[in-house]
């Protein structure tokens, strides 16, 4: 997994609540057996005017000029500013894969759906929860100022605006550690093999039918 330490990047405001994983990556792209290449189809139904299918040449498709990600001023954005309950719906990890492949490394919202939130960390992407008023303020600023960049510092747990105003966020210690160091979860868990074995033996004694 790629590590995440600090990031300074262009922010793009996606001003809708309850953005679901079906919107982030529509189901037809879930037929792939790979974990890369979903970026061009992130927000497919909002981003293009035609119906997208896997295997299409996306560079030839008609784009929706009104969709915020398509506005010239937001090209190259790496921070997604979103509204409440972002990433609700399905558990598809294709959603963070698509956002990451598109170029996002951090998402800021007042709240996230649990599974999506969790999936982000597994892919070197940082979901940041700020207070509703703080997110409102960022929305206002990013819309008012072209080229608006934010700086995210994971170790300090802060988001800083171009004027130097700083907001802090909380992040679970374990996840922070993994993300800062780009650690592979499986490798970490395997360090506890003996404990898992011991638990398993005792569990088998107590509930043998589970191992039948």
């Amino acid at each position: 997994m790629q590590a995440f330490t600090t990031l300074t990047g262009l922010a793009v405001p996606l001003d809708r609540a309850n953005v679901d994983t079906d919107a982030i990556i529509p189901k037809q792209f879930l037929k792939s057996i790979k974990r890369s290449g979903f970026g061009p189809n992130a927000f497919d139904e909002w981003r293009y005017l035609d119906h997208g299918e896997p295997g299409m040449d996306n560079s030839k498709r008609p784009i929706n000029p009104d969709f915020v990600l398509n506005l010239p001023r937001y090209q190259g954005a790496s921070i997604l500013l979103a509204r409440e309950n972002f990433g609700c719906g399905s558990s598809r990890e294709h959603a963070p894969w698509a956002l990451e492949d598109y170029g996002f490394r951090a998402i800021i919202a007042p709240s996230f759906a649990d599974i999506f939130f969790n999936n982000c960390f597994k892919n070197g992407m940082l979901p940041i929860v700020l207070k509703e008023q703080e997110v409102d303020l960022l929305f206002q600023q990013v819309q008012a100022q072209e080229g608006y960049q934010l700086t995210v510092d994971l170790s300090a747990q802060t988001v800083t605006t171009p004027t130097g105003e700083s907001f802090s966020f909380s992040v679970d210690a374990f996840r922070k550690h993994c993300l800062l160091n780009g650690l592979d979860d499986i490798g970490l868990t395997m360090q506890h093999q003996d404990k898992i074995r011991a638990f398993e033996d005792q569990h088998r004694q107590a509930q043998p039918w589970l191992f039948n």
């Binding site: 558990s91 990890e93 599974i115 999936n119 597994k122 892919n123």
Partner: peptide
């Protein structure tokens, strides 16, 4: 019982 992502 709960849903998990592919990494999980």
């Amino acid at each position: 019982a709960h849903g998990i992502g592919t990494s999980e």
